[in-house]
Amino acid sequence: MSEPEDVSRGLPATSWAVLGMLTFGEELTGNDLKKWADWSVGFFYWSPSISQVYAELKKLEAIGFVESRVVSEPGVRGRRLYAITERGTDALRTWSRDAPVEVPVLKHGVMLRLWMGHLNDPERLKALVAAHIANVELQLRRAELHADHTDDEPAWSFPRMTLRWSVRYFRAEIELARELFDEIDNASAEFAKVADHDQFGSPLPISPGRWKNVEAHVHSLAQDNSDI
């Protein structure tokens, strides 16, 4: 007899995030799940659009991990409520326990702009960093508020733990960003030593392609470590 098909294979982490939000004993609408994500998961993983939430729910219902029902009230448009199934709970528990630990992918828009800081002037770069700090301070206050409002709910002890982690993360991000003000000045002073530029004003490195050698060295070290 052939093995049953593993329908969970290939599901993205966002699918598991939606399933996870349905494991707290409540039936939720798509809008509820969007708010739930913004309230908690959005601080450290995923702040979805409502269309993304419904796309995930449709996919999860099709494979039997989620079920739904429509609740109608007089004079009110019917609401579709979603709940996780036993099959979905089992699959989620297995993923949570056994999925490989992946390296977090950081997509930092401000750092990308600083990386190409030679196209800008130091004061403008500092203004970008200041705006970034203001944004993170807002996120910090929100995370603190959300964490504080979970203190009397034992069922949310693990979400509370991740919210507290988010608070520490945002504080660390603010400190790292503040260090950039002096580093921008240092980088600008070093950049002034560039001798040659192309016709567009971009800097010409002393050793073109040097980064390739560095990458080859890093790859070699990683290979050596994997053989140990």
Rank of each mutant, 00 (worst) to 15 (best):
T85E: 06
H149C: 06
K59N: 14
P48W: 01
G117V: 05
E153A: 09
A13Q: 12
G42V: 11
L112T: 09
L11D: 02
H217F: 07
Y45A: 12
F44M: 08
D32N: 10
F24P: 02
E5V: 14
V7S: 04
V66D: 03
R113I: 13
L19R: 01
V66H: 03
R142C: 08
K107T: 13
R210M: 06
G88K: 02
K59M: 08
W115D: 14
H219K: 14
G25Y: 03
E215H: 07
L145P: 00
S2D: 15
A187F: 04
H217I: 10
Y169A: 11
Y82N: 09
A195E: 13
D38T: 09
L57S: 09
K59G: 06
M21H: 14
S72V: 12
S72P: 04
D152L: 14
L28D: 00
W156G: 00
H132I: 02
S2I: 15
A91E: 00
W16S: 07
Y45R: 11
E144K: 07
T89Q: 07
N120R: 10
D224E: 15
D196H: 11
R178I: 00
S68F: 00
I228L: 11
F43A: 13
S2Y: 07
V214L: 15
K35Y: 10
G75F: 00
Y54T: 15
A62E: 11
